[in-house]
């Protein structure tokens, strides 16, 4: 009975998180916020659903496989998000028009995608002086 209750709670919490991820995917105004809202919430949601499964079947082999999937998803989700985000930024996907700041703008070398580290907050003035 206790096991069933825990399993049910994890199912409901997990699917709610995944639902929020889907809603965020639909509602957020630009790609980067869509990724922020969807990839993490869905990772957490799948984690909860697999935990529910581990509570339902308490055999060792099932639990270890569920843990393996959770660990794998948690390890790979940020890497995938980072790769898509970087590729999208380089491809010129625009930020939302109400974004307050973009310090990555203009830092990429167009040919080989080497990324500089000029601190534009302090060096903007110097560069302006150099141009003049």
């Amino acid at each position: 009975m206790f096991q069933e209750a825990v399993c049910a709670i994890f199912l409901i919490v997990g699917s709610t998180f995944i639902f929020i991820a889907g809603l965020g995917m639909l509602r957020m105004p630009d790609l980067f916020m869509r990724m922020s809202a969807s990839t993490k919430a869905s990772t957490l949601g799948v984690g909860f659903l697999l935990t529910a499964l581990a509570f339902k079947f308490t055999q060792l082999d099932i639990v270890s496989r569920a843990v393996a999937v959770i660990v794998f998803v948690i390890l790979t989700a940020p890497v995938a998000a980072h790769m898509i985000g970087r590729a999208a930024y380089i491809a010129g996907v625009p930020l939302w028009y109400r974004s307050v700041i973009d310090e990555l703008c203009g830092q990429y070398d167009r040919c080989d995608h080497r990324l500089g580290s000029i601190d534009i907050r302090t060096q903007d003035d110097e560069r302006a002086e150099g141009d003049a």
Binding site: F32, K40, P78
Partner: peptide, 26 residues
């Protein structure tokens, strides 16, 4: 650090500069 920032909802690591001095975070 980059993976932890990306795993936290609302923040997303975009890239690290080639000389590893600056992390660009959305």
């Amino acid at each position: 650090l980059a993976n932890l920032i990306t795993l936290t909802p609302g923040t997303l690591t975009l890239d690290v500069s080639s000389d590893r001095k600056i992390l660009y975070v959305h």
